[in-house]
Design a protein around this nucleic acid. Structure first.
Lengths: 217, 217
DNA sequence: CGGTTGGTTGATCATGCTCAAATTTGGTGG
DNA sequence: CCACCAAATTTGAGCATGATCAACCAACCG
């Protein structure tokens, strides 16, 4: 694969042919075509000028920060239909990358009251989500973190028992504050105890929903 | 002290004589008198109806969540002049308590565009703050967490080298995802190495600013 | 096929937690 | 001012969870 996690290659300007099903659902007069990002490519970088807010049309995005020594904290994953890229000032404080082949539309945010009206509920949702994630990182052990993660992903995919995880184990680790080895071990343990099945590397089937939910504490 | 951390005693309705210096700085026609909360009293509880957003006039507030077994994660501290209590829907998802004697004004949030215009920047600031805290909880060790905490508190108190910490070690631990013992040990180590001095239990003097800043990574 | 990337598993180690016991602090009443 | 008390904090010893280091395995792709 030509695009690694920290690839400096940016293809923002490349507009792919848009799948008909992936067009934005808004009834706006001018429909913005999604920009296409290949797996691993950068959507924006920390320090860059903030253009507006983003919406995932298809694919998945990771938003993260880095420490000087390379430690990474993923603050959130964003799936199809979700918004990301909110900032307090006009500078990006985080990095955003496509996890897999991803289409993104950008909405330029004029600082109008009308715009704020649309943005506020989304910003608040993001705030509550981040604050709930603080509880996971601050006070839950490895099993609880993974259980909470799987429960959350399942709910965001419509409560299906078969869920797709576009991200790698390394991404999951950097989201949950765990190492890749610990993530793998907990997955194995959950499989062993019959709570989940792993039909493929990126597929999880939740067998004992209640057990998983209870573990998330 | 009659008010313990989880005291069910609520004195919301009690309006104290307002110190002249503590009046809200807004030039609004009707100046809302701050409601007075004694140390340890509840401002709102998880599950309660959300009335609006709050502003600390004097004192300090902790906002937190609880797990079923009593583990607590403080998502943030709010000092004089800061806002808190933003929610995505009309229900409180967190608890809020006065850390010490505290005055709070509440602003009822009509869902108007004009209001959103004021609220959005604050919500976004809270969002960025929460996301930055995720990095601390997910990827930093005990010393880095304490250093980041002290640096943050110092900056929020105007960059003074002498800072006041209204919260207990237990609060700090529950904010940083550490035990009270670990917090105490790190404070001792920082004192030993001459980075800080501890003139009183609630007072920290930062001696080697650069060292502390470097430790925060 | 060989090479690369991502994932799993095992052995050992270290950071921070738990349990327990001093010690300090701040408040209160004599 | 001082003795006393409860709460908060500090310190110590041992332990457990998850990290680190290392080897191995599987899928994918030229």
């Amino acid at each position: 694969m030509a695009f690694t996690d920290n690839s400096p290659i940016v293809l923002n300007t490349q507009i792919a042919p848009v799948p008909s099903g992936a067009r934005p659902a808004t009834g706006a007069a001018r429909i913005p075509s999604p920009t296409f990002y290949p797996a691993g490519s950068e959507i924006y970088a920390q320090g860059e000028r903030c253009q507006g807010v983003y919406r995932v049309e298809f694919g998945a995005v990771r938003v993260y920060r880095l420490l000087a020594d390379g430690r990474r904290q993923i603050s959130g994953f964003h799936l199809a239909g979700e918004m990301f890229g909110f900032e307090a000032d006009d500078t990006h404080h985080f990095f955003a990358e496509a996890i897999c082949a991803t289409g993104v539309t950008i909405t330029r945010t004029a600082r109008t009251a009308e715009m704020s009206c649309h943005l506020l509920p989304m910003a608040l949702e993001g705030l509550v989500r981040a604050q709930e994630h603080l509880l996971v990182l601050g006070r839950q052990n490895a099993v609880e973190r993974i259980a909470a993660f799987l429960t959350d992903m399942a709910e965001r995919q419509g409560g299906l028992k078969q869920i797709e995880l576009p991200m790698t184990r390394s991404d999951i680790g950097d989201y949950l504050g765990l190492t890749i080895e610990t993530v793998s071990r907990v997955f194995s343990k959950l499989k062993q105890s019959g709570v989940i099945r792993l039909p493929g590397l990126r597929t999880v089937e939740i067998v004992k929903w209640q057990s998983l939910h209870d573990m998330a504490a």
